[in-house]
Design a protein around this nucleic acid. Structure first.
Lengths: 153, 153
DNA sequence: GCGATAAACTTGTACGAACAAGGAAATAGT
DNA sequence: ACTATTTCCTTGTTCGTACAAGTTTATCGC
């Protein structure tokens, strides 16, 4: 009779899973470092600016922003606080629903984003994309989708 | 004359990169939640126990541990503090080099690990491994390796 | 051997994020 | 209309991590 014996991960599985964790840690750390040293802009702040730029009117509700950048609501409140102190973003109220606040990209914010973008894109390409060919990119993208759309289980 | 015009990511590239970020966030969050609710053990603590179990004598130097779990030295100091308070780990000195401290897995720690392991493995399999077939796992593992071994650039 | 340099940890401190509770405004039910 | 519920955001607090400085021990150069 066996107690507490669980089938461990195979080397193949371990390589895929462990590598995933290590790769993520290394990449995010390095990208953040690059952005921070070159433009004084942490990766999270960069991502907020990026999402705002892509949004209609260059603005997004705080709650939408929270979903985009994978942060808690309160996390976004404080993140936008910091961006607003640097005049990269402003908050503005919504007349139709006075509970909501929009975060809007300022001209300064747009400039900061434009300045930082080449650094970031170069980093992503050099550290990540470069290592995959086109079919692999496609497969990856599809895999992540399957993985995030919670299976019904 | 074009200023600040940078080639953006293609949809393919964006799917692979953005999906990677989202997948990581979702997975780690969910795995941590599972472990925490089922066994009151955060993922980082679980990983320390796991590495210690796999090590000779079930012990590792603090600095080795830091490398294994992708944390700063001081981060590990405090993580081991927490584990030691729960008697899952003990610190012991090294006679040959009195600067080093070993963290050693206690019987309680081994038990906690054994209890948590099925939960964690099931989570990893269900949330991650399940979505890839064997050749994909192989490719992934190889990709992460290329990616982490800093290219000489 | 002795002083300088380096290595292994820990501690002080600051910061970013999460969670829980709270306030204000909208919506729903009756 | 009026209260109850829900939504949207912020604030109080705690926790985990990083960075820099400090302590102790080992190593290196001479």
């Amino acid at each position: 009779m066996q107690r507490s014996v669980v089938k461990q991960l195979s080397p193949l599985e371990l390589g895929a899973w462990g590598g995933f964790l290590r790769a993520h840690a290394a990449l995010v750390h390095e990208l953040d470092r690059q952005l921070e040293t070159a433009h004084g802009l942490p990766l999270t702040q960069y991502e907020v600016l990026l999402h705002l730029e892509g949004a209609p009117e260059h603005r997004l509700r705080m709650s939408e922003l929270a979903r985009s950048v994978l942060l808690s609501q309160s996390g976004v409140t404080r993140l936008v606080d910091r961006l607003q102190q640097r005049d990269l973003v402003v908050r503005e109220g919504c007349p139709e629903d006075r509970r909501v606040l929009y975060a809007r990209l300022t001209p300064d914010g747009a400039r900061a984003l434009a300045a930082a973008r080449p650094t970031h894109l170069a980093g992503v390409r050099d550290l990540f994309l470069r290592h995959f060919d086109e079919p692999e990119l496609k497969t990856l993208g599809e895999s992540w989708e399957r993985l995030v759309d919670q299976p019904q289980s």
